[in-house]
Nucleic acid binder design. Structure first.
Length: 471
RNA sequence: GUCCCCGUCGUCUAGCGGUCCAGGACUCCGCCCUUUCACGGCGGCAACACGGGUUCGAGUCCCGUCGGGGACGCCA
């Protein structure tokens, strides 16, 4: 039988890191088994579901490269089907009408808690045949009262639930609309899902759903419940602690490959291996190897991975991403696309993220308006002026304008002045970059061009002179 | 409260009864390299929650305690 998995988010917000990991593992399971991956949007809660959220989920999936074979299916478009199944359940006696008011239910629950019981619907309408005038009933599923329901979980093993712990859940609201536990079952059944992979928080729903599958005479799929993902502090993921949409990771300069690699190692491992290509993770992934315990997200490790991926990525796509990052800094990309690639080549080994690359590359596209005070104080001193002058002189007629020749010129100035290379390179660096950090000075000047380099050196010399005057 | 799940370095993890005075990775700290920032190289710190069993032998199996999490909705 071919494996079919699904990712079934409810569109009430962006695709966050936990959802992304669930989607990844489902996708991996399908790809590993040569099966299909289905995307389903669980939007039955019309109050909270939004179209932008659907878009954000789709965008996130695509950005991560998690392609789906079928869907997206929308539950709101399947209401006729749910009604049909609800009717069927009613006919077969697996469902019944409940006329209890919310007040009545609340009272029942608090009484149960007071008695030290688990709060659950006690089935008081189970045998009721008379409608209550003026009350639109909800429909409840008749759970077995005795025995146990075993969940054979691919990551947890067997988990047993006493049937009397399960309650007669509502499958249709008083307005007739279906609820979650019914729609998942109907969809998983209709869509031929063989492997349900989802978050830990659904483990408790599973025995209820199994009973619905049974009532419908459907084959029960295999389940795998993934451990939660926690915030960096080990606490539950919240808006304040890392619960951001995956697209925000792009904004922060992360590559999708790095995020995916990071995510796959959260709750799963293959020996000591840290780096996985897509092909490798597909080949090596085994749902049975998934961990049992929750894991905390850790930006440091993601950054390390990102750095690795930035070093590996092809220049072309990094250049495009850098242009995007520069645009966010209000810097229009260079009219010369070749320059972008040169900048990428010069910076790729020295940054963790593309946002950082863009930030550190501003000076390639804009003449610095002022100097970093600390860097200037240290490097643009009076003694530096003659050195800058000498470098300017060497550079003015240098042929060809290439890193190698520039390097030789700078070295020559240092040797002639009997100073260490840094004494010359640093002032030049601050002069052209505005700060003390840049790629090697020869490569930097090569990219900047002769004209711009000389102009910036001149400007720095003037600045030194003005400082001396005012001193 | 009730039910369910979980518990190895700060973090991600390897470990599936002996090969573990517990291995790798990130972080951190030294040293080397170095024109800045990085990269890279070398070295270091750091953990089996606790208590009982089972066994010749337990991080690995069982029980309990403690700690953490999840679920208990006309949300999904």
């Amino acid at each position: 039988m071919t494996v079919r998995t699904r990712f079934a988010p409810s569109p009430t917000g962006y695709l966050h890191i936990g959802g992304a990991r669930t989607a990844l593992f489902s996708w991996l399971q399908a790809r590993h088994c040569g099966g299909q991956f289905v995307l389903r949007i669980e939007d039955t809660d019309r109050e909270r579901s939004t179209e932008p959220a659907v878009q954000a989920i789709l965008d996130g999936m695509r950005w991560l490269g998690l392609d789906w074979d079928e869907g997206p299916f929308y539950q709101t478009q399947r209401f006729d089907r749910y009604r049909e199944v609800i009717e069927q359940l009613l006919q077969s006696g697996h469902a019944y009408r409940c006329y209890c008011s919310r007040e009545e239910l609340d009272a029942m629950r608090s009484a149960q808690q007071a008695r030290g019981e688990k709060s659950r619907y006690d089935g008081r309408c189970r045998e009721r045949s008379e409608p209550r005038p003026g009350v639109e009933p909800v429909l409840r599923f008749r759970m077995p009262r005795t025995g146990t329901t075993a969940v054979e979980d691919r990551v947890r093993g067997r988990v047993n639930f006493a049937n009397d712990e399960l309650d007669d859940l509502i499958i249709a609201r008083s307005d007739g609309s279906p609820t979650y536990n019914l729609t998942v079952v109907v969809d998983d059944m209709d869509m031929g899902i063989t492997d349900v992979i989802r978050g830990d928080d659904h483990l408790n729903n599973t025995p209820k759903q199994i009973n619905i599958f049974n009532a419908l005479g459907a084959k029960v799929p295999a389940f795998a419940h993934l451990p939660m993902i926690l915030g960096p502090d080990g606490a539950k993921l919240s808006k304040r602690h890392g619960a951001v949409g995956v697209m925000q990771y792009r904004e922060e300069g992360f590559l999708p490959g790095a995020l995916v690699n990071y995510l796959v190692r959260l709750g799963w491992a293959h020996g000591d291996q840290e780096l996985f290509s897509r092909a490798e993770m597909i080949e090596m992934f085994d749902i049975a190897d998934v961990n049992h315990s929750a894991s905390a997200i850790n930006t440091g490790k993601l950054e390390w991975l990102n750095q690795h991926y930035v070093k590996q990525a092809d220049t072309e796509s990094l250049a495009a991403e850098l242009a995007w990052q520069l645009a966010r800094l209000d810097i229009a990309a260079s009219p010369d696309p070749g320059k972008l690639k040169l900048v990428v080549a010069a910076q790729r080994e020295r940054v963790k993220t593309l946002a950082e690359m863009a930030e550190n590359s501003r000076f390639f596209f804009r003449r610095p308006t002022d100097y970093e005070p600390k860097a200037a104080r240290k490097n643009l001193k009076r003694e530096a002026e003659p050195l800058l002058a000498a470098v300017r002189c060497e550079l003015a007629g240098l042929q060809p304008w290439q890193a190698e020749a520039i390097h030789a010129a700078v070295v020559a100035v240092a040797e002639r002045a009997s100073v260490k290379l840094g004494k010359v390179a640093q002032p030049v660096r601050v002069a052209v970059c505005g700060g003390a950090v840049s790629p090697p000075i020869d490569a930097t000047l090569a990219i900047l061009g002769r004209e711009e380099t000389l102009a910036r050196i001149d400007r720095a010399r003037k600045w030194i002179a003005s400082q001396v005057e005012s001193a």
